[in-house]
Simulated scan of single mutants.
Amino acid sequence: MSPSPVPHVKAKNTPPTFLWATAADALVPAENSTRMATALAAAGVQAKSMCLRAAGTA
């Protein structure tokens, strides 16, 4: 089983989604949000995403 939610994206059961990430986050790469946004778009799920430049994980 994948720890990523990306393989589980389905248009029929995924609600509209807002994703945000920080480019400076050393723990969780912003690329994870990009992959999720791409999967949501491919499934026809309404989504918005934002990547902040100068913040990291607290």
Rank of each mutant, 00 (worst) to 15 (best):
T14G: 03
A55I: 00
T34M: 09
P7W: 03
T38R: 15
A47L: 14
Q46M: 07
M1P: 10
H8C: 10
P5F: 01
P16C: 01
P5N: 03
A37V: 05
P15G: 02
V9C: 06
T22I: 00
A42W: 11
A41C: 12
H8M: 10
A58L: 15
A21Q: 04
N32M: 14
A58F: 13
S49I: 09
K12V: 14
A24M: 10
M1H: 12
A54D: 14
A41P: 08
A54Q: 13
R53N: 13
T17L: 07
R53V: 09
V45K: 08
L40E: 03
D25R: 08
N13W: 13
P16A: 06
L40K: 07
K12I: 13
D25I: 00
A54H: 12
M36V: 11
P3N: 11
C51E: 12
A42H: 12
L40D: 01
M50A: 07
G44F: 01
L27V: 11
L27I: 11
W20R: 00
A39Y: 04
V9M: 00
L52R: 13
S4Q: 06
A23H: 08
A39T: 04
A39N: 06
K10P: 02
L27G: 05
A30L: 14
L40I: 06
M36S: 09
N32V: 10
H8I: 04
T34Q: 13
A55C: 07
T38F: 12
F18R: 05
A26L: 15
T14P: 00
Q46Y: 12
V28L: 15
T57L: 14
M1T: 07
K12S: 15
D25Y: 02
A39D: 06
V45T: 05
N32S: 14
F18P: 01
T17I: 01
S33F: 12
L27D: 11
R53W: 10
G56K: 01
M1V: 11
V28M: 13
T22D: 03
R35C: 00
R53C: 10
V6Y: 04
T57I: 14
T38C: 09
H8K: 06
L40M: 03
T22E: 02
S4W: 05
P15C: 02
L19D: 04
E31C: 08
A47I: 12
D25N: 12
V6K: 06
L27S: 12
L40G: 03
A37S: 13
K48H: 14
S33Q: 14
P15M: 10
G56L: 05
R53Y: 08
A39V: 04
V28W: 12
A58W: 14
A21K: 01
F18G: 03
S2M: 06
R53L: 14
M1D: 09
P29T: 08
G44R: 02
V28T: 15
A26Q: 15
T22L: 01
G56E: 04
L19R: 04
N32G: 11
K48V: 01
A21P: 00
R53T: 10
S49D: 13
T17W: 11
V45G: 08
L52E: 07
A23L: 10
A11H: 04
A55Q: 08
T22P: 00
P3M: 09
A39R: 03
L52I: 10
V9S: 03
R53P: 12
S33A: 13
A24F: 09
N13G: 11
P15L: 12
A54L: 04
F18Q: 05
K48Q: 14
G44D: 06
P3F: 09
P5L: 03
G44P: 00
S4P: 00
V45L: 11
